[in-house]
Amino acid sequence: MLRLLVLFAGLLAVQGQTTNVQRCSGRGRNAPLPINAYVEGCVDPPCPLPRGSFATVHLVFRAPRKLMRMTTHAQAFVVIVPINYPLGEFAETCNFLSNSFCPVMEDEVLQYSLQMQIENGFPVEVSVTVEFRIEDEANESILCIRVPITVVPPVSP
């Protein structure tokens, strides 16, 4: 009963906020999609992400097993070439869970927010596809999403 309540609360928190994401094609292609994924400000990709800002991705997912540690990875696909994108401190998934902490229990519904810097050096109007993959301590993929983005000019102050 408590699990259903937590799941319901998590879904209410992101109700009406869902981004149409795809299953990954790279390393995480066999990983499941999350219960919900929302890239702030974007419902239908390609998601416009302003240069010089942080993109925020909210994920609601169920832990497939007891997890001691999780790491988030990002790869940008320029044409078909994958380029690893370092997330720095944001790669530590457990530090950005909003409703739990690690270790997490099997079947626990987790709410996670990821931030990614859209560097000032990125060319404007360039479209790429980004894959976000969460792995456990054994480097097994827990979930993976693929979302097309377009870098747009910075937001005026």
Rank of each mutant, 00 (worst) to 15 (best):
L33F: 04
L33T: 09
N36Y: 03
A37D: 09
Y38Q: 00
V39G: 11
V39R: 06
V39F: 14
E40L: 11
E40K: 13
C42S: 04
C42D: 02
C42K: 06
V43W: 10
V43Y: 12
P46N: 06
P46L: 03
C47I: 06
C47L: 04
C47H: 00
P48V: 11
L49G: 04
L49W: 05
P50Y: 07
R51S: 08
G52E: 01
S53C: 06
S53Q: 06
A55V: 01
A55Q: 04
A55M: 09
T56S: 11
T56E: 13
V57R: 14
H58L: 01
F61W: 14
R62D: 07
P64C: 07
R65L: 05
L67M: 12
L67E: 09
L67W: 05
M68I: 00
R69G: 00
M70D: 10
M70R: 13
A74M: 14
A76E: 06
F77H: 11
F77D: 02
V78K: 07
V78M: 08
I80A: 02
V81L: 14
P82M: 10
I83Q: 10
N84A: 14
Y85N: 10
Y85I: 11
P86N: 03
P86R: 02
L87I: 08
G88M: 08
E89N: 08
E89M: 05
F90N: 12
A91G: 05
E92R: 15
E92A: 07
T93M: 07
C94H: 03
C94P: 04
N95I: 02
F96I: 03
F96A: 01
F96Q: 06
L97F: 14
L97A: 11
S98H: 05
S98P: 01
N99L: 02
N99E: 08
N99R: 03
N99K: 02
S100V: 12
S100Y: 06
F101N: 13
F101D: 13
C102E: 07
V104P: 01
V104G: 01
M105A: 14
E106S: 07
D107C: 01
V109F: 06
V109M: 04
L110Q: 02
L110F: 11
L110D: 10
Q111K: 14
Y112W: 15
Y112P: 10
S113W: 10
S113F: 10
S113K: 15
L114S: 04
Q115C: 01
M116A: 09
Q117D: 05
N120P: 08
N120W: 00
F122W: 13
F122I: 03
V124C: 00
V124I: 05
E125M: 12
E125L: 12
E125S: 10
S127A: 15
V128R: 09
V128Q: 05
T129S: 07
V130I: 15
E131F: 13
R133H: 02
I134D: 01
D136H: 08
D136K: 08
D136G: 04
N139A: 13
E140I: 07
S141T: 00
S141F: 00
L143R: 12
L143F: 15
I145V: 15
I145A: 06
R146F: 03
R146M: 11
R146S: 15
P148I: 00
P148Q: 03
P148M: 01
P148N: 04
I149T: 01
I149R: 07
T150Q: 05
T150A: 00
T150M: 03
V151K: 00
V151W: 05
